[in-house]
Design a protein around this nucleic acid. Structure first.
Length: 270
DNA sequence: CTTTTTCCCTGGACGC
DNA sequence: TGCGTCCAGGGAAAAA
């Protein structure tokens, strides 16, 4: 499930390949992808557009074209890019002006493609996303402000993209373990030093994920087919019953905000 | 306003 | 082998 490190890895693979290339032909095979807009209309908007850069904000990929028009791609659960032929799960195919193909694959069809005009890009993203956790503006004070007054479990608050852009289920659990904070703690009850630990935990977990080029569990892969190795670094995620790497206590599993949640009952006290 | 629940999707794992 | 059930979960939308 692509979260910030996975999406950033995809971005860094695509950017050098697509920069300066033109979308010569665009075929969208699944009407769900562009809903509520007609696939043909979206394809037509994209044909002839020249890529200025591929950027990322939260879990969104931004294909910026000359003039500022932007394609926002969200991979959701199983979206990925590759260039292989004959993929039964191909939902869109872009032929570039150098003749190569860029295939968008999405088994579960949760992913979305949205074309937005230049002046709409920032408002669309700012309405949905909080700070970029790896950028300068994201400090302990900013995190404190985002958690203040929220009685929801801190894990639920972390999954809210307006709290920390790009966090997902895996990195939220890993960050909370690093911070030694129980996922069900009400967000507003965290003490100042706990928020500082959480801030560090968020950054560390994401940085390790980036260094490992993401986690490949089921579907995620880079455009060239390489897999991430972050799954080898998990401290708690998916490790129910296995010993906590810090204290040896068996990892427990619960549910938060409808998501599987793994934690160490000794290191992360309620 | 905030928080919780439901829904969308499919393949894989599992029990019988 | 085959069938039914559950699970994975990001985010929009509805419900509380």
């Amino acid at each position: 499930m692509p979260e910030l490190p996975e999406v950033e890895t995809v971005r860094s693979s695509l950017d050098p390949v697509l920069r300066g290339r033109t979308f010569a032909r665009v075929e969208i095979h699944d009407e769900r992808l562009t809903r509520p807009f007609a696939p043909e209309a979206v394809a037509r908007q994209l044909e002839g557009a020249r890529v200025e850069s591929v950027e990322r904000r939260g879990k969104y990929l931004l294909f910026r074209f000359d003039g500022g028009r932007t394609l926002l791609v969200h991979l959701r659960m199983t979206g990925s890019f590759h260039s292989r032929a004959n993929d039964p799960y191909a939902r869109a195919t872009v032929t570039l002006d150098d003749g190569t193909n860029l295939v968008y694959r999405d088994v579960r069809r949760f992913g979305t493609w949205l074309v937005v005009e230049p002046h709409e890009v920032a408002p669309y993203l700012e309405a949905r996303l909080g700070l970029e956790p790896l950028e300068r503006g994201f400090g302990p004070a900013a995190l404190t402000a985002r958690l203040a007054g929220r009685r929801a479990p801190v894990k639920a608050a972390l999954l809210d993209q307006r709290t920390v852009a790009g966090m997902g289920n895996i990195y939220a659990d890993e960050a909370l373990w690093r911070a030694r904070i129980h996922p069900l703690r009400p967000a507003r009850e965290l003490a100042a030093d706990e928020v500082r630990r959480l801030h560090r935990g968020v950054r560390r977990a994401l940085e390790v994920g980036l260094a490992r080029q993401g986690a490949t569990l089921r579907d995620y892969a880079q455009p060239d087919g390489r897999r991430g190795s972050m799954q080898l670094e998990f401290r708690v995620y998916g490790r129910e019953g296995e010993p906590c790497p810090r204290c040896g206590t068996p990892i427990e599993k619960t549910r938060t905000a409808g998501r599987g949640t793994w934690y160490c009952p000794t290191c992360q006290r309620l």
